[in-house]
Amino acid sequence: MTIGLSPHGDGAGAVWVADTHYNRVLVYAMPLLPTDGSMNTEQPELLLSFGTYGTGPGEFTYPSDVLVLSQPDGKTIKRVYVSEFGGNDRVSMFEPESAGASQGMRFVGQFGHAGDAADPSGFQRPQALALRPASGDRPDELIVTDSVNHRLGRFTLDGGLIAWLNGAGVPGRSAGQFWHPRGMLMLEDGTAMVVEFGNNRLQRVNLDTGTCLGLFGAPGSGDGEIAEPWALAAVGRRGFVVDARNHRLIELKLPSAGVHFATDSGTVPPLAGVTTGTLPTRSPRPSNP
């Protein structure tokens, strides 16, 4: 799921949902958050739905994540990326059929296919997408967690491979290695916070060098522990980890500010069922010889 621009082209925010087992993407208007802290039970408006089951261009097996790229004007959509697994294991790209009113999305291309780590363009369950903003000479990059190949991929916005992190695809527990990386969050400093399903931890990495900048969390169900984490999201400096096996959300203080929502307004009320705390940092393990 991601927060992006509305397909209406009015600059409003919208919630883009990869509806995995119904093989489609749903786009909802941003739900209003009451300022008095009460719950909003109103069903948000469905703005757009696209995708059907299939293996052909623009069709989906199991879409896993959506990334919305905005135009420089900040009001209209430039491109939408959808990652999927379950046979297709690729990233598809869509653009609005026409600017302005809510039309459908048209398929414009795809990259990657089902394949193991030996295949440079092989994916095995691309699980999450993130945009790494340009910095200096470096242009924008698309970061993909290739979950079952246990690696992160850096791609151009057109799907060209830049580099793999942990490209050999060998799962590991050491710093810099991954084991079923799933959710991911780009931090302002260009580093990435990656949620590892298999290692039951978060790892902050330098996307240029692949160096581990910090390990957070330990397997378990107690304080400071997580089990089978799936995803990570941020609201301001507050990070929220989906601690799946423990049936909870864990709030943590991110090392630096996360992504700001375009429509973020005022105080964000506390979320029900969220455990607030800080995951202990762990010293990076030395790499295996």
Partner: peptide
């Protein structure tokens, strides 16, 4: 399976 129809990826897998 999540996609119980013929030819679905998880079944064919």
């Amino acid at each position: 399976p999540h996609s119980p129809f013929k030819g679905a990826a998880d079944l064919s897998k």
